[in-house]
Design a protein around this nucleic acid. Sequence first.
DNA 1: ATTGAGACGTGACCGGAATCACAGCCGGTG
DNA 2: CACCGGCTGTGATTCCGGTCACGTCTCAAT
Lengths: 259, 259
Amino acid sequence: MPSAFRFVSRREGSILRTGEPMRAPYGLEIIENCMSCPHREDKLFCNLSAPAVQRLAAIASAAAYPKGATLFVEGQSPRGVFIICSGRVKLSTSSADGRTLILRISEPGEVLGLPATVTGMPYELTADVIEPAQANFISRQDFLLFLREHGEAALRVAQQLGETYHAAIAEMRTIGLSHSAGEKLARFLLDLAVDHDTSKGDIKLTLTLTHEEIAQMIGASRETVTRLFSDFKRRQLLQIKGSTLIIKNKVGLENVLSS
Amino acid sequence: MPSAFRFVSRREGSILRTGEPMRAPYGLEIIENCMSCPHREDKLFCNLSAPAVQRLAAIASAAAYPKGATLFVEGQSPRGVFIICSGRVKLSTSSADGRTLILRISEPGEVLGLPATVTGMPYELTADVIEPAQANFISRQDFLLFLREHGEAALRVAQQLGETYHAAIAEMRTIGLSHSAGEKLARFLLDLAVDHDTSKGDIKLTLTLTHEEIAQMIGASRETVTRLFSDFKRRQLLQIKGSTLIIKNKVGLENVLSS
DNA sequence: ATTGAGACGTGACCGGAATCACAGCCGGTG
DNA sequence: CACCGGCTGTGATTCCGGTCACGTCTCAAT
């Protein structure tokens, strides 16, 4: 295990914020050793050599972001990567007329801004914090230098990018290949259920997204999502209690795909 | 500049073919020195050290594919990467009920199957040859070994993946963020025009796709595409002569986006 | 307690585009 | 030539889902 680094508060990425200013208490109590959080292990920078890990710790700077903060904005030239330690971040793109498409909600352990940072092209998405988050920031310059010095890490980055691409294509399929909105919603829900235990009939999962957000993820209107949920509930396909969603009839839901 | 390698005819990737069997003449006249084709320079493996290039040449095997050949199929476990030397290859994904979504048409110089090969996940797309092609194949095993040995190449791969991702997101936007089909088609055409000289009024470009294929690229029906083309012609936005498309009024076309 | 903002639920309306169906067209091939 | 298969053009019809326009409910703040 690495000798992980300590709290640094350069507070990168808080330049462009849409929401309220960062509240004082944040950023103090929290971060001290983000690089050693459990998620790190099975994600991007596991199994690196000791020197590589140390170097990484040296160039990363931790910071906390309140709900509503924006890590980076679509079109902005890439400043670097963010490694999420906790919280949740929404990745979206939007058009001139205000319509928004949410690509995915990223969870702890993920690395954001990787494609842009590596290629030098502008960030292709906007990253908004929707649950108070801690993240390590690494500037583009430092990161590229690091990759050049550590080929092993470059390979890991390539793998990570491949996975991200894979996910993007999957998203694309649900949006582009289905005729009905119901199909899209069903696909979306089944995708969520993939990780969870699928053995017995009921699949329980927490869904902390508003109908509006779900709509933006599947490319539909808010009302349609609401109606579809009612419809699915009526057909005994699922139940909703607060932020808990229970899939009662998985096969039934799968049948929606091929209708 | 490298001492490039010579004709090898292992004929990789011809295992799964949808179309007619490979005709005899193909594969003979053609390849002799694919790695030294002009496209290579500004693409994936430029600026590598001499040993890296040599190694690359050693593990790559050239082959020719007729129209209709399939390099790889969605869902298949990754065999390796294909570096396109000439011809054009269609990358698509399709659903159970036969609907197809074309991601892009790749041109000489591109590397196909990279994400899958790097991550080990199944190919996420299907690659069909639509114009007789020559390509170098590198098996997954060889390729990964090569990347591990040459960190510089791994970094290049990461960049390439980043760009591919970028393109995918762009595609996503045109499909997901536009209300009307007209908007999608206009976006598609303007994307094509990006590379071409944009200075004076008329932009001339060759479009060797059927309406059907265009429809599958923008997520619309064939009839709609036909109708939209008639419509655009009527409105003097463009002209079509054979496989040549001339954009007469670029700003007019751009106005379609925000209507 | 009152207010107000945001999320959810539903009805009515209507337009865009998918679908079906068929008619010209053009380029191959026997 | 005559034939055929794939591509293109166009009409008629249908219906999904976006949009508008409300009403309800919850929760937080004053």
